Computed example of a mutant assay.
Amino acid sequence: MKLVYVFDAYCGWSHGFSRTLLDVLSRHPELDADVVSGGLFTGSRRVPIREFGHVRGANTKIAELTGAEFGEAYDRLIADGSFVMDSEAAARGVAALRHVAPARTAETATALQWVFYVGGLSLSDPATYRKVAEESGLDADAVVAAFEAPWARQAAQADFRRAADLGVAGFPTLLAADGDGVTPLAHGIATTAEVEQRLSSLRAR
């Protein structure tokens, strides 16, 4: 069995789920975890953030329900309204971090969300990946080179296809994969205890 975490780095609910994800993984070092980018803001949804009028209200709800932090720099970004969330660029970044440190993808993916939702940094900017890599003790040059490599775009598209093939329609979604079977463990909001209970029930079958 392994875990499959389908998220989007620009998804506030995924940011809210970060603590639960890391808690579950810390309790189960025996389980490998695939991190898959879902592609929330692509195509016609790649527009200035002001087009999403629900963002402020959603973030307030996320903070209330999960304790997730939204920083002042991010608030300024939202207030300006011109920033464009590009999920393909973010997925390229996740692919780059996964390439350099595959065993730490969950950790670095949640770090990406932190630098956006707290630090207000663009996930389309190579400097953001340099910062995350340096703060994570990774080879920053290798991460930036991977982010800018042509194969990273292909990896992003492969992630989007995998999310669709898994039948994931919303983010975040945590799945348990065992052979050909896939079982949902969490969708949207879930506590560590709730995920643990579902995982225990699955293992008891």
Rank of each mutant, 00 (worst) to 15 (best):
G43C: 08
V35T: 09
A33I: 09
G67E: 05
Y10R: 05
D23C: 08
R27Y: 08
F52N: 07
A79W: 00
P102N: 13
I78D: 00
D75E: 12
D23N: 11
S14V: 11
L31M: 14
A9S: 15
S87V: 01
A58Y: 03
R50A: 15
R27V: 04
R27E: 15
R46F: 00
L21P: 11
L22E: 07
F17I: 12
L65S: 11
G12H: 06
E51T: 14
V100C: 05
S87N: 02
H54L: 05
S44N: 03
I62G: 06
V4I: 15
H28R: 15
G39P: 02
G53R: 13
F41L: 01
F17M: 09
L31P: 06
D34G: 08
Y74V: 04
A68C: 05
L21K: 12
E51L: 09
T20W: 14
L25H: 12
V47D: 02
E51D: 15
L77Y: 03
T66R: 03
R50F: 13
E69Y: 01
Y74E: 02
S18L: 04
A91D: 00
H28K: 12
R98C: 01
N59H: 15
E30N: 12
L97E: 09
G16M: 07
L31C: 10
S82V: 06
E88F: 02
D80Q: 12
E88Q: 11
V55L: 09
G12V: 04
T42W: 01
H54G: 02
R76D: 08
L22Q: 07
G71V: 06
M85H: 00
H15K: 10
A73K: 14
V47P: 00
I49K: 06
L40W: 03
I78C: 04
W13N: 11
T66F: 01
G16S: 10
H54N: 07
S44T: 15
V47I: 11
L21R: 13
G93D: 00
A68I: 03
L40M: 11
L31Y: 14
T42P: 00
F41W: 04
S18I: 01
E72M: 08
S26D: 12
G71L: 09
D80N: 14
G12A: 07
V36N: 01
A101Q: 05
G43L: 08
C11T: 04
L3C: 09
I78T: 08
F7E: 06
V35P: 13
H28T: 15
I62V: 15
M85T: 00
S26C: 10
E64S: 11
R46H: 00
C11G: 11
S87Y: 00
S18K: 01
G12T: 07
S37P: 01
G93C: 02
G12M: 03
R98M: 04
S44E: 14
H54Q: 10
L77R: 10
R46W: 02
F17L: 08
T20F: 14
L97D: 05
G67D: 10
R46Y: 01
G38D: 01
F70N: 07
